[in-house]
Design a protein around this nucleic acid. Structure first.
Length: 418
DNA sequence: TCTGGGGTCCTAGGACCC
DNA sequence: TCTGGGGTCCTAGGACCC
């Protein structure tokens, strides 16, 4: 496989520049919703050591002295721009996965002269949308991400790098810190540091068992991809969301219930709209209520409650009503709340719930299975069967599609071996 | 003083059902 | 009466991504 990742450079900042070319060449930062944190930076801002995610007030001096342009975010604009970019990419690369607002995985398998193809894609996008992109290419998603990062850091590459040969990959990984690997965040990096694993190359040499134990099955897949194996397919059709939530903070902490109720209703309405747009209805509703966790001086209160609805719903008024009753059940007097939020989940297709599909039916495989168990017990004796099962139970978890025959064979194998 | 918001997946244990 | 089996739902916590 040949997998690319196309990634827009400094996406929000670049979008702002498209609509205001005067910002070209100047340091730009874009802020989060209520203008709290920095969520995007132009290269010039990065050069000033302005960090991602930091509150803007940390940079008061710098903003003034260096003339940094500070902008509120405009997600509608970014969404539109993103859709244009994805459509355009798709014209040149038919098999792709839209991974985030500013990234897409591209299946470049079978393309010839991958590097120059990527360069021309880059030029086309820049010319037609004004947005600069970088493209990393490798045998799988993880290595494509690695390549992309290196391409961005190395000006001579002009934003494109294809890691193809094993030797080339290993050379790149030898200089690549673990913390920059896609899927390794702060906690895993600390863990690796404690075990003296610093580069991605070193990580590829760690035993699978250790990786899976400490970093779960996701970690194992990731490490396997660093080794050059293909473990994660492109996700070609965007699946409907599994949960939809909304929980912006209040500008100021709020003590009184009616104001909180009103805010919650607004959030629920927004979620319900999203829910209907994807033709889902929710079975579960979660409400949470927080005080300001950053202010240790005020008494803290943090409550979350999930309730299941009597029937799946996507109706705004109905959902608001349920959310409100949950809110009232967790609300407590005497606190100043900074955030109230809602999360809808447990989705079913919207018209599905109207059909009476929820008749309980016993699973026929149960009967089948107990017959098999009886037969085995009769044939080998209860103790042997039990021992055999214990032997492989830990390592082998049959999934949903239980195949009784396969299961029986496994048990018999183990008995024969012991 | 001020500190984002919206998502995903995995693990593990307990209650309960067939 | 106990054991063996698969399975769901729920909760809670922990990790990650952009």
């Amino acid at each position: 496989m040949v997998i690319g990742i196309a990634d827009c450079n400094n996406f929000y900042a670049s979008c702002e520049r498209v609509f205001n070319p005067a910002l070209e060449g100047k340091p730009v930062v874009v802020l989060s919703n209520n203008d709290g944190c920095i969520v995007a930076r132009s290269n010039e801002s990065k050069a000033l050591k302005i960090k991602m995610g930091e509150p803007i007030h940390h940079y008061k001096e710098l903003v003034k002295s260096k003339g940094v342009h500070v902008l509120s975010s405009n997600y509608e604009l970014y969404g539109d721009m993103s859709a244009r970019i994805m459509r355009l990419l798709n014209r040149f690369v038919p098999v792709m996965e839209v991974y985030s607002i500013d990234e897409a995985f591209l299946d470049l398998t079978g393309f010839d002269d991958v590097v120059s193809r990527c360069h021309s894609l880059q030029r086309t996008l820049k010319a037609w949308t004004g947005i600069p992109i970088s493209i990393g290419v490798g045998p799988n998603k993880t290595l494509a991400k690695v390549a992309n990062r290196i391409a961005k850091q190395t000006p001579s590459m002009d934003g494109v790098l294809y890691l193809s040969e094993l030797a080339q990959i290993q050379a790149a990984l030898a200089d690549f810190p673990c913390e920059d690997v896609w899927g390794i965040g702060y906690q895993f990096n600390q863990l690796l540091k404690r075990n003296n694993i610093k580069t991605a190359l070193e990580l590829t040499q760690v035993h699978d068992v250790w990786i899976q134990k400490h970093m779960t099955i996701d970690g194992l897949r990731l490490v396997d991809e660093l080794r050059g194996n293909f473990r994660r397919d492109l996700d070609l059709s965007p699946s409907p969301k599994k949960s939809i939530g909304s929980a912006p903070s209040f500008g100021e902490a709020i003590p009184d219930l009616p104001t909180i109720q009103e805010a919650l209703a607004t959030h629920v309405a927004r979620c319900a709209e999203k829910l209907r747009r994807q033709y889902s209805a929710a079975n579960l509703i979660t409400v949470f209520l927080h005080t300001n966790r950053f202010n240790p001086k005020v008494p803290q209160y943090f409550q979350t409650r999930t309730v299941s609805l009597p029937h799946a719903s996507s109706a705004t008024s109905e959902l608001i009503q349920y959310a409100d009753s949950v809110l009232q059940s967790i609300y407590q007097d005497g606190y100043h709340f900074k955030k109230v939020g809602v999360l809808l989940s447990g989705f079913v297709p919207d018209d599905f719930h109207q059909m009476a599909l929820y008749t309980e039916q016993p699973d026929p495989r149960m009967k089948q299975l107990s017959n098999v168990m009886d037969q085995l017990n009769g044939k080998y004796g209860r103790d042997k069967v039990r021992l055999a099962i214990q032997g492989f139970k830990q390592n082998w978890k049959p999934k949903r599609q239980l195949l009784t025959k396969r299961y029986t064979t496994r048990i018999e194998d183990v008995i024969r071996a012991t």
